[in-house]
């Protein structure tokens, strides 16, 4: 579903990504972790073409992201993205947040878009909040609306960039539950997170990034028990405490 081949990226002289290689198969969930500044967010942004990269290739569902002929707007409709700070549109209700793209991009009727949005709100467990503005929702509720907004485009892939790190502990679970549900339901997912419980439960692969490179990868639990590099061990000790 996603092939990342020898991708390198620079911001001026500063190299953010160093020869990154990764493959995500259909239906898989890959968890990405690593210290701050290691390039995790940048990697996600390269996958849906929000950031250009200078070297290498990324193929999403058979389409090359860096090919100038690729319609990036179209490509992005296939890839949902969820942000750390939710990024709901503050001047719209939850329902309007969800229906905007289906109406403007997919040209669905308001009625059709709203019906689908209500189903998604039920799926994330907050249908009663449809007409609330984001500022009136808790962090956990906002993040669930944000997930529903991404799902409304019926993407083939979902990317999450630290979706729970801005949340109070009691709200983390309600968001993770939705994500576990998606993962077991067969969605292809790339999740940047330090929630190792989540990683253990659903990840087919866990990769560890440092200074722009993937320095460790493992399937499930082995990753935690015998990390190969001291850097990884150090980091895992900190987040698993």
């Amino acid at each position: 579903m996603i092939q990342i081949k020898n991708v390198s990226k620079w911001y001026g002289d500063f190299q953010v990504l160093r020869d990154v290689n990764e493959e995500v198969k259909q239906g898989q969930t890959v968890v990405v972790c690593g210290p701050s500044g290691s390039g995790k967010s940048t990697l996600l942004r390269c996958i849906n073409g929000l950031e250009p990269f200078q070297h290498g290739e990324i193929i999403v569902d058979g389409v090359s992201v860096s090919d100038p002929a690729t319609n990036l707007y179209r490509l992005r409709t296939e890839i949902g993205m969820v942000f750390q700070r939710f990024e709901l549109y503050p001047h719209m209700t939850a329902l309007q947040n969800i229906t905007l793209a289906p109406m403007k991009v997919r040209k669905k009727s308001r009625r059709e878009a709203a019906d689908h949005a209500m189903k998604l709100l039920e799926r994330v467990g907050i249908p009663e909040k449809a007409h609330e503005h984001p500022a009136n929702l808790s962090g956990g509720q906002q993040q669930r609306v944000a997930i529903a907004r991404s799902l409304a485009m019926e993407p083939k892939i979902m990317m999450f960039d630290e979706p729970t790190s801005a949340l109070d502990p009691e709200m983390i679970k309600e968001v993770l539950d939705v994500m576990v549900d998606l993962s077991t339901g067969g969605m292809t997912m790339i999740v940047v997170t330090h929630e190792m419980g989540f990683a253990r439960e659903v990840a087919e692969e866990i990769i560890f990034m440092d200074e722009g490179s993937i320095i460790e990868r493992g399937t499930d639990i082995s990753f935690f028990q015998n990390p190969k590099s001291p850097r990884t061990k150090d980091f895992l000790d900190k987040i698993l405490m």
Partner: peptide
């Protein structure tokens, strides 16, 4: 990230400004 959230749903630059950024 607000711009990126809008772009990530497939909205064009024009639509992002028209429906999200300018009203905000």
């Amino acid at each position: 990230d607000q711009y990126q959230a809008a772009f990530s749903t497939g909205l064009t630059t024009y639509q992002t400004y028209r429906y999200v950024i300018i009203p905000y």
